[in-house]
Amino acid sequence: MVAPTAPGDRSSREEFAQRLLKGSAKLSYAPIVDIDWDAPLDPDKFFLPPEVVTLYGTPEWDAMTRAQQIELSRQELVNILSAGIWFENILNQALLRDLMHKNPTASATHYALTELGDETRHMVMFGKTIARIGGIPVRPKLVQRMFINALPLAFRGSVLWSAALVGEEIFDALQRQIMEDPDLQPIVQRLMRIHVTEEARHIQFARDGLRKMVPTMPRYRKVLLANVHGLGGPFYRMLFTLPIQYHRAGLDGADMRRVARQNPHFHAMCVTSFASLSAFFAEVGLMGRLGRRWWRRAGFL
């Protein structure tokens, strides 16, 4: 993996992109062959660590059998992987549109194309994992898919990198908690290791882009960017507690969503997942008052 960029890093965008390209050449994966898709699933192992499941620590969780807890972890993993597929779709569309305006000979362009390749492989990896564990993808409704397809029109420059960080860093923080759990299905551990390794480069590319853009950004744009990312808070709160995942596990969807949203363990997980990104936004001057309020009200601060 590539070392994180420090606040004092003065390398140019091109130099930084060249470092990432070298890192990609040394360590990248092809999930089709790098994951053993025929390996059996262990019926007594979780698909997410219990501590990451939204109902963990509640009386409702304690009343469930281990088999029921494992099934809920399976459904919540399917929900997370489904969301990952749709977000990678948005990011890929936005990157392609942005590249239409870039120099095709530049190293930064070449790394953006490398990231596109990584993300398409991740979509395949997520889809194959959902199928392998016997899940049904959680698909957005038609009107939501129309909105998703429109988002890349607005994602360019600093907005693109800010959106990429909101979409990637929270999942990345969760995956780092997940992948070391010995009680986890091996296929899930392998998936998380691959994704964390390659997403580390994507996150640093986005961070470097913002770090270099903010000092010369017009004030109105900086104020807008420092607050609009706060919409990620209520979005993630909604995403992590979708009723369908509880319903598919044989529970009352609306009731369990309420329980999860009041669960202090779930709130602590949300705070942990946002901590690194929150610190970065504050460091580069992109944590506005309204944005902070939205993240706090959603339970991420």
Rank of each mutant, 00 (worst) to 15 (best):
I130Q: 06
W161F: 15
T58Q: 02
P137T: 09
N89V: 02
A163V: 13
T114M: 14
A249P: 10
L231C: 04
L184R: 01
R193D: 00
F266C: 04
L191Q: 11
A131S: 10
G8E: 10
A206C: 11
V223H: 04
H101V: 02
K22S: 13
E180H: 14
G232R: 09
D38V: 02
A39P: 04
T216A: 15
L153Y: 09
L48I: 11
T197F: 02
V2M: 10
Q189I: 03
A173W: 01
C270A: 12
M179P: 00
L48M: 15
V223P: 00
R10S: 13
V124R: 14
H101C: 00
G285V: 12
F280N: 01
G57M: 01
I35G: 05
N103E: 12
T58N: 03
M213P: 01
L184A: 07
G291Q: 08
L55E: 07
G291C: 03
E14K: 12
A206T: 01
D208A: 11
E88G: 04
T105V: 01
M238E: 09
R97I: 10
I170G: 05
Y111I: 10
V223D: 08
L210P: 04
F266I: 00
A254Y: 05
K26Y: 01
T114N: 13
L95W: 03
D98G: 06
L160I: 06
A67V: 03
E283L: 10
R211M: 15
Y246K: 02
E283K: 13
L20N: 12
R132C: 04
H195W: 03
I170N: 08
A106K: 07
T120C: 10
Q144G: 10
R292D: 13
R297Q: 13
A39R: 14
W37S: 10
Y236S: 09
V223K: 07
L77P: 04
Y236N: 07
A298Y: 06
E168F: 01
D183P: 02
W295S: 08
P49Q: 13
R145Q: 14
V33M: 05
P234R: 07
P182Q: 05
S12T: 15
M64Y: 01
A279Q: 14
M125S: 12
A6Y: 02
K22F: 01
I80D: 05
G134S: 05
P7C: 09
D9S: 11
V159F: 12
R74M: 00
V214Y: 10
P137L: 06
A163F: 15
V196Q: 09
L142R: 13
A249L: 01
V159W: 08
